[in-house]
Design a protein around this nucleic acid. Structure first.
Length: 329
DNA sequence: AACAAAAACAACCGCAGGCAT
DNA sequence: GATGCCTGCGGTTGTTTTTGT
């Protein structure tokens, strides 16, 4: 009895993500949190939030002192779902779109930490990444394979054993690399065993230094790291080129909605309300939506007028008619 | 300028482990 | 304990970008 594939691959898209796909994925996760990845592609196609609700936008505020509200009835029609498998969505989010990601090359300090941790943990990239906030296992793995290995070899250090290379040998790939990675050293095996016993923290010399810093106050390990490295931990939107800040649709509901109903959007997908309806109900409309022209729907929703009015409202201090829901991460 | 090779990076694949039934 | 599902992990591949000729 074989294991089921993670998804039905027929008709699913592969390869690089488009800005539109990113937009859908970000909008969905920011408003609904991360629910089960397998179901996400279908749900993410349901355009976010104020579904069939009335959105009130101040209109012509500059031309007239009388506040004119235009009922912006937007049929946030169900768009086609993301044609990606859940696994692909998860990878895209965790490796590229997550707001807390740092991007760009690893700093010298981070690189040293990676080397240090690799000497203890081997190729367990996720464990290594967990010690480097804002970095993903994939990123570290790639950096290791493209930069660090070469650098260590140049320095005469075997990147697998972390011991000095024999001086007379020419640089060549060790057998274990070609066979798919190093076998753990006794030291690494020991660490692996420790891990099995549950949450044993491997403290490297570098981490010890950080811990010492942390002891001076309430700062966490990572806070100490960040302080010493002058790292900006803010969501650096200009480092995520595909999505402009204003393109991220923020949940907006009118004042008649209670805060509690809004906050419920972080609950499970089956309970999540979207504009007063349940997602499960929305799913039923999927076939209805597919009868519309996809591009037409996209353009109608993301037209300049709409984005401008949304920005205007979000920047308004007196948001008496609107509630902006913070991203749920 | 054109092409090839190398490097860098993003994404995919298959497996393993955890959990619920 | 067996089975099925979901998620996370690590290795690998494919694509894009950069560099060299």
């Amino acid at each position: 009895m074989g294991r089921q594939p993670c998804c039905d691959k027929v008709g699913l898209k592969k390869g690089p993500w488009t800005a539109e796909e990113d937009k859908k994925l970000i909008n969905f996760i920011l408003t609904n949190g991360q629910c089960c990845w397998r179901a996400l592609p279908k749900l993410a196609g349901l355009f976010p939030i104020s579904f069939f609700s009335f959105s009130f936008f101040p209109y012509k505020m500059r031309e007239s002192f009388s506040l004119l509200f235009v009922i912006n009835l937007r049929f946030f029609l169900l768009l086609l779902g993301l044609l990606r498998c859940g696994k692909s969505c998860r990878l895209r989010w965790t490796n590229y779109l997550r707001p807390d990601l740092k991007r760009g090359l690893l700093s010298e300090f981070e690189e040293k930490m990676v080397i240090d941790l690799h000497s203890k943990l081997g190729n367990r990239w996720s464990k290594i990444a967990s010690n480097l906030p804002g970095r993903t296992d994939n990123e570290i793995k790639n950096h290791w394979n493209t930069h660090v290995k070469k650098k260590l070899r140049k320095m005469g250090i075997d990147p697998f054993t972390h011991k000095p290379l024999p001086t007379t040998t020419t640089i060549q790939l060790p057998d274990n690399e070609q066979a798919g990675g190093p076998k753990p050293t006794p030291q690494q095996s020991e660490v692996a065993d420790q891990d099995k016993e549950e949450a044993v923290v491997v403290e490297t010399p570098l981490q010890s230094t950080i811990n010492d810093q942390a002891k001076d106050g309430d700062k966490s390990i990572h806070a100490g790291l960040f302080d010493s490295m002058e790292v900006n931990n803010d969501f650096c939107i200009d480092e995520i080129p595909l999505i402009e800040p204003h393109e991220i649709l923020i949940t907006c509901e009118n004042s008649s909605s209670s805060p509690s109903s809004s906050s419920s959007s972080s609950s499970s997908s089956t309970d999540t309300t979207v504009g007063g309806r349940f997602l499960s109900n929305l799913l039923e409309d999927l076939e209805f939506a597919t009868t519309f022209d996809y591009n037409e729907i996209i353009s109608s929703i993301w037209d300049d007028d709409f984005v401008t009015s949304l920005d205007l409202y979000n920047n308004c201090d007196d948001n008496s008619n609107i509630m902006v829901e913070p991203p749920l991460l």
